[in-house]
Design a protein around this nucleic acid. Structure first.
Lengths: 144, 144
DNA sequence: ACGTCTTTGAGAACGGGTATCATTATCACC
DNA sequence: GGTGATAATGATACCCGTTCTCAAAGACGT
């Protein structure tokens, strides 16, 4: 788990301390391959028997976000989701309006188009989200 | 104001009635060239002397959204924004993390990359948002 | 082990968005 | 122009994700 270890190191380095709640959040997030909401993280930890407060989950996520260790993902439903930031495997999301399924995708041409746009406007882009909403293949063939 | 008139017609057609609050919201939105939040619309109408409830603003926006007359824009700050849907002038947004400025952009290569991704995944994409965050040209040259 | 300073957890507080409900306004019909 | 059925409206209570507060617990240098 390279991301988990590196993230714990960076967090300890930044604050000078370690903490149990923060470690649990990082470890859970490191096991995921797509995004999780703060509530989902909280529920996952509680169901695993940990006595973790929701505020600690938000604090851990905030700290990681400031250090660029997580990618904040906004799917448009008013709930912030987070996933480990693997710079070598940057991806975006397809959201099905029918069944709510979220699946990641990556596309080099999309990335280069984004970089070209930002550069042409004088922008130093720190982050970008692309969210495609619609009907997934399964739901297109179901009744709709 | 072609969008304003067409939108009022479509809304009346859909519900069978007209209403003063809805008309004010549509007229205000039709005067904008980029996105506004519900609160901004509400404040704008109240400061113009109209006694409009915030609930009516949300209802008007919801109705227009269902008919595809507005584009819902999510800039990642937890506030939904809306702008007139001009299908001939589809655009996305650059957001400055420093000064909060929002500016629109459009890019045909970006659009075609999105369509290609969605098609390759069997997705019927109904809507897509691209939000680029970073430092705008002004803020890059200021202190930061 | 001790003291200091950060983290933590519970719950209050905040804010955008939605639901409720009595009142008002619109419109087809007369 | 009335009249009645029905939708729109505005004030406000409510929901829920997120942030704030604060006392208690934990981490680390000494």
């Amino acid at each position: 788990m390279p991301w988990t270890d590196a993230t714990l190191d960076r967090l300890r380095e930044a604050s000078g301390r370690s903490g149990g709640a923060r470690r649990l959040v990082v470890e859970l997030l490191g096991r995921q391959d797509c995004c999780l909401s703060a509530q989902e993280i909280h529920d996952g930890l509680r169901s695993g028997g940990a006595r973790v407060g929701i505020a600690s989950v938000y604090r851990a996520l905030e700290g990681m976000d400031e250090l660029g260790l997580v990618q904040r993902v906004d799917l448009g439903d008013g709930i912030a989701r987070f996933e480990p930031a693997h710079e070598e495997a940057h991806h975006h999301h397809l959201v099905c309006d029918d069944c709510g399924k979220v699946e990641p995708f990556e596309d080099p041409a999309l990335e280069s188009a984004i970089e070209r746009v930002a550069g042409g406007r004088g922008y130093a882009v720190a982050a970008h989200d692309v969210v495609l909403r619609g009907a997934c293949e399964d739901c297109r063939h179901d009744g709709d």
